[in-house]
Design a binder for these strands. Structure first.
Lengths: 298, 298
DNA sequence: CCGGTTCTTTGACTACAGTCAAAGATTATG
DNA sequence: CATAATCTTTGACTGTAGTCAAAGAACCGG
């Protein structure tokens, strides 16, 4: 990766300062005007019932601290705390009717605040602002995502493949049979590799590389979680897989894809892959691609 | 102004949440790792010597709170506090050598943090992010600026005209004579109007409207502070002036401008003004424009 | 069913952020 | 030149955020 230029850093920090101090601070102040900010945030995060444990990990809070805040909300009649049905060690916390009303009021105020800020702009300017914010957020999310090799049998790898299979199954008219998935040993150790993309600790994408013939590798199951699409993550996964393939001495990479996945095909084409005749008879592929690698990078 | 659509509000809040929690929080945590966040911020704001009073108003801090923080920084040897030369009630605070070193280190760390965040992106993506952030910041600043009518003799109005005169004087080869400025009574009450644009309480632009003939008004001294340019503020001022003119029953607006101000001319043209022969012999104008208003808005 | 682990609660803290009011020093103003 | 206004300092607070450790209850694996 290229070193980050000082211009980019300066611009980033300028925006960061401006936004955090001016808008973010305002927001926090607004949110926390009736009750402590921590409690207000908690109210936000309790959707329709979560365990304290999940809140604790999601918000990275101290167990004692969280316990007390939850109790405060309970005595205020905003949440109901009960023993979790599946595991009596856990506590399940959910909004009461009063809590839902309170949350709605909080949202209304936050909306009004946002609307007040946007009020001075014309519709065209609001459109531009929305687009710029969307672009910035997508790129910031992408920047925060890491791609790491994991063992093909690792839980994260299996979780991704499960999600992939379910996704494809729902999308293809003919459905998807899990027997077509790579087996762990095909993508572990000498045989191949498996990459998982993580956003804030959660797997949001994957890609597999396996040996097809000597010096010929195959890419499989390049997949991105629906929440993480349109960020440019697939391309990042592709780059990681190609770098790995080059390091392993593969001269050629092949892959197959399905006619219905038009974005995927466009990505492969723009990534230097060209369509070739079928090289194998996977059940679900109907387009085949190949790319010649330029050799391992020293 | 149009009502703000729920899409715009939702998108704004989504970005706000993401950015404040993810990036802003990180930044604060980083900045405040050695000393309290308040003190770290203070160190940032003390450039080359300011008065406590200025810090107090700029950061909106309690006087006692600020006094104590400053003293803490002083005992740590980071700042020097002395009686202000002009006014012995005031305290002048400035960085010591150690303070400057500390600040530099703080900046280095913040830069490293930003660079770390941008590291996962390609140069093209960083460019796009920078541009999106710049656009968003400009629009947010514009949204936060208010335009208000003030008396032509008000201090803010005079301050703007002074800045305008100095600006023009530096830009025109022939200089600028202050006698060409409108007199307060020409733009007050029945005679005319004067608008000032405020960003966070500070005047950053102005524009004057005065009566030239019955039903014919003239726009003068439409000016934007250099720090607030390229935000679209001039257009906002123009709109405010035109609305005011229409309300006062003017059917035609005229103005003159200088050949060297090409952006200004482009703005007037795109705003519906067309070039006309000289209607008066102001010393400094050499292009004349006119716009026919559509009448007062009910 | 025993030992280790997980989850929550409680007690006991610490530090930071921020407010309010009184008082002293200095400057501006009628 | 007396009085009001301004600025800073100090004392005395409050509330929020957050940490750490101990202990009890429930679960899990062998």
């Amino acid at each position: 990766m290229d070193p980050v230029s000082t211009q980019h850093v300066a611009e980033f920090r300028r925006f960061n300062r401006y936004f955090t101090r001016r808008i973010g601070a305002l927001d926090d102040h607004y949110l926390g005007q009736d009750r402590p900010l921590g409690e207000a945030r908690l109210l936000f995060e309790i959707g329709e019932g979560v365990s304290l444990r999940e809140l604790r990990t999601r918000l990275a809070l101290d167990a004692g601290y969280l316990s007390r805040m939850a109790k405060t909300l309970q005595t205020q009649g905003l949440v109901r705390i009960s023993v979790h049905p599946d595991d009596s060690r856990l506590r399940r916390v959910e909004l009461t009717r009063a809590g839902r009303i309170e949350l709605k009021e909080q949202n209304r105020r936050a909306d009004a605040l946002a609307a007040g800020l946007l009020d001075g702009l014309t519709t065209a300017q609001r459109d531009r602002l929305t687009e710029a914010m969307g672009t910035a957020q997508r790129l910031l999310r992408l920047a925060a995502i890491t791609v790491a090799p994991v063992d093909g049998a690792a839980p994260d790898a299996r979780a991704c493949l499960d999600a992939y299979a379910a996704d494809i199954d729902a999308r293809f008219p003919e459905g998807f049979d899990r027997s077509d998935l790579v087996r762990p040993e095909e993508v572990s150790g000498e045989a191949g590799a498996f990459f998982v993309a993580y956003e804030e600790g959660r797997p949001v994408g994957c890609g597999a590389l396996r040996r097809l013939e000597p010096r010929v590798g195959e890419l499989r199951h390049v997949w991105v979680h629906p929440d993480a699409r349109r960020l440019g993550l697939a391309r990042r996964l592709l780059t990681a897989l190609e770098t790995e393939a080059a390091a392993r001495g593969f001269a050629v990479l092949r892959l197959d894809t399905h006619a219905s996945l038009t974005e995927a095909q466009a990505m492969y084409r723009s990534g230097g892959y060209r369509e070739i005749p079928p090289y194998a008879d996977h059940v679900y592929g109907d387009h085949w691609f190949e790319k010649r690698l330029s050799g391992p990078v020293s």
